[in-house]
């Protein structure tokens, strides 16, 4: 009895329920159209990808059944063409991400130490190129890097080389394109954690006799790790799955996992194998997120200790 009096909210609610018979409408019902939409356009397509990757089906005969064929084609150890493609994609994405981190971290740090007024304008200037169409930005690099492009014309004009240097259609040009396109995705999350960093901790570290290098290694960098890990995810994932950068800057020579999936669906019409590759890519995404997520959690635990 006394318990009820201690809870005026519940009392009010029950009084309200008694007063007017509560209408049967629940607020959560307004999410119903979305739930139906998400079921049809998010859940069902994912299930279909799984179904296509594990079942064969012949158009004319109409037969249908379970098969490992598509995954076996990928995990073919006597002719590991597709595993090589995946390995190349992972490797290119890792190198691109690492370069973005090495170039981007100092920039994010410099940016975070600017005066707030200037900082706003400068970070605006960083975001601006990202709003340009991705394809047009990549096309611009074709203009610059081609054999008859600006860079080669300039190099020949000043006599540094007499034959054009082949910049395009190499692993290097794909990595370059990735770095260009995804660098802001690395800088911005790191910058966001660095501006929230408590300046008094950096001061305290200095007061206790640490050099800048020590402060950076022991205080600033560990505290910015959440930003670093989301920066890594935000550059690694698009670099891993792209087929535009590789198609435009790598030509037909550099084929990545994204190119291979695209070909299965839009050229050869092999939905089964394309779906299997998509499943493999999804598993890889989940793994990457699990690794980074675990790292972030560990980080926040030690971060809590530090505080």
């Amino acid at each position: 009895m006394s318990r009820r009096r201690l809870n005026p909210e519940a009392e009010a609610a029950s009084a309200r329920a008694k007063m007017h018979k509560k209408p049967k409408f629940r607020l959560s019902f307004v999410a119903l159209p979305y739930c139906v939409y998400a079921l049809i356009f998010v859940v069902v397509p994912m299930v279909l990808v799984l179904v296509y990757s594990f079942f064969y089906h012949y158009e004319n005969g109409g037969s249908f059944g379970f098969t490992w064929e598509f995954f076996a084609r990928f995990f073919n150890f006597s002719d590991p063409v597709y595993m090589q493609v995946l390995w190349r994609s992972v490797w290119i994405a890792l190198v691109s991400t690492l370069i973005c981190l090495v170039i981007g971290y100092p920039m994010a740090y410099i940016l975070s130490r600017m005066k707030p007024r200037i900082r706003g304008i400068v970070s605006f200037l960083f975001v601006l190129p990202m709003w340009m169409n991705f394809l047009l930005r990549t096309y611009a690099w074709m203009t610059i890097l081609e054999n008859t492009g600006i860079l080669n014309t300039a190099l020949q004009a000043i006599g540094l080389t007499d034959k054009p240097i082949q910049f395009m259609y190499s692993t290097g040009s794909v990595i370059f394109g990735n770095v260009y396109n995804f660098l802001p995705f690395m800088i911005l999350p790191i910058y966001n954690t660095l501006i929230k960093l408590d300046g008094s901790m950096v001061e305290a570290s200095g007061d206790l006799g640490a050099s800048f290098g020590q402060t950076f290694r022991r205080v600033i960098f560990p505290l910015s790790l959440p930003g670093v890990s989301s920066g890594i995810m935000m550059t690694f994932m698009p670099a891993l799955t792209t087929f535009i950068v590789s198609r435009l800057l790598g030509g037909s020579k550099i084929s990545l996992i994204g190119d291979t999936i695209e070909k299965q669906f839009l050229s050869t019409g092999d939905y089964g194998f394309g779906s299997a590759l998509s499943v493999i890519l999804m598993v890889l995404t989940l793994l990457a997120m699990a690794v980074m997520g675990k790292y972030e959690k560990e980080q926040s635990a030690t971060g809590g200790l530090l505080m």
Partner: peptide
């Protein structure tokens, strides 16, 4: 999800 995965899953649908 990677855009390409969302794209192909919708294509299949």
């Amino acid at each position: 999800n990677a855009d390409i995965v969302t794209g192909v899953s919708l294509l299949i649908l």
